[in-house]
């Protein structure tokens, strides 16, 4: 470029320097592209701002990750407490089948009828019998067909034993004074006179519950474990001689239960008359 020596050459060099590089087209495209890009971003942001659609707390799924346990083979402690109710079961048994219709009394066709004993047929009863006639069995079970003289109808699916569902207990909360009868029958007694202050017992439950810290219990303790403790309540309401009666199998639960009794300052002065001995308390902590 700098090899020109004459004036025209000088001019030519200047002209050459003023000549544009052929980038104008690409430049235009690039600027247009960027303008569109930024315009799009800003426009989107503006539109977003103009039409806010805060779904927070709405009926949507909230964007949280839904986790599903793919296997129940994990060795997690059971969270369903064991049920002491001997009648409760996981698999409710089927209720016994509805009674089969009585077998018709067989009439010996060959016998000679005694006129005095012939009765007029009861039309009403027959109609009724027909109305409640059980549906015809679809398939008779092979075992029972031989064993029983009549076929067992299929039990209805909704005919299940009722269990587990009952209305709230209306049981009297007061203890009854119990006596031993003369014929040696021993009834369960709750002491000499019975501690007839249910509100005080409710207070014990509340106070113990307040002072039981579940955080002290090892989380591996099976749900429903029970630690039984014993203590005596003095006249001023302070619990004394707290001791473990029956371990739950979890030392941490046993300790938490004992600590709860030790933590209680007072349950309140005993309401029973001073001549009564201070009551023993058997309390259990259930995890």
């Amino acid at each position: 470029m700098s090899t020109y020596l004459d004036a025209s050459g000088q001019f030519g060099r200047i002209e050459r320097e003023f000549t544009r590089d052929p980038i104008g087209r690409s430049m235009f495209v690039a600027i247009l592209f960027h303008a569109l890009l930024f315009g799009g971003v800003i426009g989107f942001a503006l539109l977003e701002g103009l039409f806010p659609h805060n779904q927070w707390g709405g009926a949507n799924d909230g964007g949280a990750i839904a986790v599903q346990l793919v296997s129940n083979a994990l060795p997690l402690p059971q969270d369903r407490p064991p049920n002491d109710n001997v009648l409760a079961t996981e698999k409710p048994s089927e209720a016994p089948a509805p009674p089969a219709p009585k077998a018709q009394a067989t009439v010996d066709q060959t016998a000679i009828p005694i006129p005095a004993k012939i009765e007029a047929p009861k039309k009403q009863a027959d109609k009724h019998q027909e109305a409640i006639k059980p549906p015809k069995p679809v398939v008779a079970p092979p075992v029972s067909s031989k064993a029983s003289p009549y076929t067992k109808p299929n039990p209805k699916l909704d005919n299940r034993a009722q269990f587990g569902e009952q209305s709230s207990s209306q049981m009297q909360r007061s203890a009854q004074t119990a006596t031993t009868s003369a014929n040696g029958q021993v009834s369960v007694t709750s002491g000499s006179k019975g501690f007839n202050y249910p509100w005080y017992i409710a207070g014990i439950q509340r106070k113990m519950l307040e002072n039981t810290y579940r955080g002290e219990v090892d989380p591996r303790t099976p749900a429903g474990s029970r630690a039984y403790i014993l203590f005596v309540i003095r006249r001023d309401g302070t619990p004394t001689t707290a001791s473990l009666d029956k371990s739950s199998g979890s030392p941490t639960l046993d300790r938490a239960c004992l600590r709860a009794a030790q933590r209680v300052d007072t349950f309140g002065p005993l309401p029973s008359p001073p001549v009564d001995a201070p009551p023993n308390v058997s309390y259990y902590c259930e995890y």
């Binding site: 014990i204 439950q205 509340r206 113990m208 039981t212 309390y283």
Partner: peptide, 15 residues
């Protein structure tokens, strides 16, 4: 044989 009353109670009964 003391004439002491027994109170049997536990957690989860009331509270």
């Amino acid at each position: 044989l003391k004439a002491q009353d027994w109170i049997r109670t536990g957690s989860g009964l009331s509270g």
